[in-house]
Design a protein around this nucleic acid. Structure first.
Lengths: 238, 238
DNA sequence: TCTATTCTCGTACGATGTACGAGAATAGAG
DNA sequence: CTCTATTCTCGTACATCGTACGAGAATAGA
C-alpha cells in the first residue's frame, strides 16, 4: 500500500517497541517526544489521509529536522504502529460490564465504528498491522471483561474480539468509500451512469432489476446496526 | 500509502475505464495488451505482495518499456483497478441458484474467501477501491440471483452483498496477518513473550486469564464458517 | 575538564510514479 | 507509392519518497 507494508503483516518487534522503560539519563535531552510526533502524524492523516503522512511533513509539523524523527521511531512502519495505538487512547471505557454481554459487545462495536469514522485511515491501517499496543490492550481488556459472562475460553474470547474488530473495520471501510462517492455529485453520477449502462446490456438482468427497483435508501447507520445485531445475537456461549 | 490512494476512495472514472469498445483501427499496432500487463501485475502481487507491483517491475515482466504501460492504463491506480477485476474472473459460477438462498450465500462467501486467500493482497486492495469492473459485476449478478428468493428490494440486496464482501475481506485480512505471524516462529515467540509480559503487569487480569486458559486452538477455517453461519442465518427477508 | 552518551539534522542515495517528447509503425487519402 | 494523421514505444528527466551516514551540539557522570 501506499507506503503500506506489503500486503501481509509487517515486521515490528513488539518487545522492542512497547517494553522500554525509558532508561537514558545521559546525553543530550530530547527536543521532542513520541507523543508529539505521533499526534502530529495522526492529525495529518485525519486531515489529508494516510498518504499525507510523510516523514518530511510530520517533521515540518513538529518543527524538527526530518532525520530527528528516527530517534523516536526506527522507521515509518513503526510510526504507523504508534499512530494506531495513539488513537486507541480515545477508546477509553469507564463503565464496568453490565452483565448483558451481548449489549456490552454491541457497545464495544459501536465505539469502534465511531472511532474509525473519526479516523478514516484506521480500517486500512488496522488490516496490515498486527501487534496491539498498550492502549489497544486496555480496550481489549474491557472487551474481555464484557465477554466474561459467556464462559468462553481464552482463545475463543480473543477470537470473538478479533472478528468483531475485523467486521467493523470491513464495514467502515466500505462505508467510507461509499460516502466518498456520494460526497462528489460528479462521481456519483458517473458511477450511476456506468451501472445503468451495464444493466442495459441485457447480460445483467438481476442487476437491472435491482437498480430499477431500488426500494428505500439505506442509511449506513441503520445498516451497521442491523448487521451487527445479527452477528452478535447469533453468538452463543457454546 | 504505499502508493495506495489516500485512505479513502480513489478517482477512477468507470465510464472511461470499462465502457470503451476499442475503436482505434489506425496507427501503430499495440505490442502488448491490458490482459498481459494486468496478468503480470497480478502474478507479481501474488508472489511478492502489492508493494512489489511497481511500474518498472511490471514493465520488465512483460518486456516493455516502463512508459509503454501508460498506453494501457492512465496511471498505477487504474492498473490496480484492472488487477482487482482481473482476478474476479476466477469467481466464475456456473451452477444456478439452488433455491436455498442461505446456502447459496454461504457458497458465495466461501468462494470469496478462497479467492482472497489465493490473492492475499486483495482484501486491502478491495477496501480502497469502489467501482466494480465487468468480471466483478458478473459475480455480483450471480449473488443477486441467489438473493432473489428473499424478495428483498434492490438496494437491500446490493447492501447484503457489499456487507458479506466486507465481512469476508475483514476476516481474511485478519486471517492472513495471523498466518504471517504464525509462519515465523521467531515473530510468534516475540509476540507471545510480549503479551505474557503485559499480562504479568497486573493491570490486565482478563488478558492474563485468557492467556492462561487458552482452550483448544481454533482453526481459521472453522472460525470463518462459524461466524459466517451466524451472520447469514441471522438474515431475514423482512 | 574530560569523556561517553544521546539527540539533531544537512546531505546524499536509490527507488518510485509519471510528464514530455522524439521516433517508429500503421491506415487511409491522394 | 507517397503523404499525412494517428497511435503506440520508450529514453530521459524530475519531484518526491524513505532512510543511511556522519559531523556537530548538548548533556551526565568521572
Amino acid at each position: 500500500m501506499s507506503g503500506d507494508g506489503k500486503s501481509g503483516a509487517e515486521s515490528v518487534d513488539p518487545e522492542q517497541l512497547w517494553l522500554r522503560p525509558t532508561e537514558p539519563r545521559r546525553g543530550r535531552r530530547p527536543s521532542f517526544s513520541r507523543e508529539t510526533i505521533t499526534a502530529a502524524a495522526v492529525s495529518l492523516a485525519d486531515a489529508e489521509g494516510l498518504d499525507a503522512v510523510t516523514m518530511r511533513r510530520v517533521a515540518a509539523e513538529v518543527g524538527a529536522g526530518v532525520m530527528s524523527l528516527y530517534s523516536y521511531a526506527p522507521d515509518k512502519e513503526t510510526l504507523l504502529e504508534l499512530m494506531v495505538d495513539h488513537v486507541s487512547g480515545e477508546l477509553t471505557v469507564t463503565d464496568p460490564p453490565s452483565g448483558d454481554w451481548r449489549a456490552d459487545l454491541k457497545t464495544v462495536a459501536r465505539l469502534q465504528r465511531a472511532h474509525m469514522l473519526r479516523h478514516p485511515w484506521l480500517p486500512v491501517a488496522l488490516f496490515t498491522r498486527r501487534v496491539p499496543g498498550p492502549k489497544t490492550l486496555a480496550f481489549l481488556e474491557h472487551a474481555l471483561a464484557a465477554l466474561r459472562p459467556t464462559g468462553l475460553d481464552g482463545a475463543a474470547k480473543l477470537e470473538v474480539f478479533a472478528q468483531i474488530t475485523a467486521f467493523v473495520a470491513g464495514h467502515v471501510a466500505h462505508e467510507i468509500a461509499q460516502a466518498a462517492v456520494s460526497r462528489s455529485p460528479a462521481r456519483a453520477a458517473a458511477e450511476g451512469r456506468y451501472l445503468a449502462a451495464v444493466a442495459a446490456d441485457g447480460c445483467h438482468p438481476e442487476l437491472a432489476e435491482a437498480l430499477s427497483a431500488p426500494g428505500r435508501p439505506l442509511t449506513p447507520d441503520a445498516t451497521f446496526t442491523r448487521f451487527l445485531n445479527r452477528l452478535i445475537d447469533g453468538l452463543d456461549t457454546g
